[in-house]
Amino acid sequence: MHYQKYRLIVPFLLPALALYGVFVLYPYAQAMYLSLTGWRGLSANKPWVGLDNYQRLIEDERFREALTRNAQLLVVLPILTIAIALTFAALFTQGGQAIKGAGFYRIVFFFPQVISAVIVGMLWSYVYNPNIGLLNGVLDGVGLDALQQSWLSDRSLVLWAIVAVAIWSSVGFYMVIYLAAMQSIPTSFYEAATLDGASRWTSFRDITFPLIWETIRTTAVYLGIFALDFFVLVQVMAGGSTTTIARRAEVAALYLYNEAFDDNRWGYASAIGVALLVLTLLLSIVFLRLAKRETYEY
């Protein structure tokens, strides 16, 4: 019997383990090693430089600026996305019966999530376009033409214009997650609260919010990782050119990409990657610790 069992276990696990080991685990391990070399990719020669790359990283002004942008995203992206998504989820589930059109809103809000980030980025590049774009057109139409901007070519606006798109495309996904979490709260809790004369807001604050706190925390970590590893939208919306304006939106992952694939500094790029990986892990741990509060079993 034992013999027979392993005759199944081994061949069933092997393909998955082999592919995962070769194409996922090995490259991560290799990145750690490369980060200790000064490899430029031109020759097989990978000169060992020890921690020099990391030393340089600490003094690198461009890296620090990129990381500062990630830090800004780290605050703005989770807070705004969670706030908007939670508001919508609450509107869905607390307005008496399911709000009219709930099924429709739910499908529509989720749209941006199933569409390639490349298309989302390109589409919004055109929405922001000062000549043919929708946004300035809408502002003009509602009499706010004073607010018209050339959004993606303004030094101080470019990053935030891109972040707005990230929030726009994430809200529906997180709303669906919160809805699923809220669904598992027994209706009797709300009925009891209503009998006690609780308002809609107090029921949300005292019942819904604490009971889905676990989920909010998890999504905050997801959004935090998204902010630290922010890449595709910036690459598509501002990465095509290396102008000074595009530089204003350069986040750490884009810097890594430019160093590796434009300048062939593979060793240094790997060090950036490892630094980001460490920051990502630290963030997850710190966040889960900080956000720990009493959880409720029900």
Binding site: Y28, A31, A260, G273
Partner: peptide
Amino acid sequence: MFPVFLALVPL
């Protein structure tokens, strides 16, 4: 947990 681009270079 890990995003793809950290492994891009060696990959």
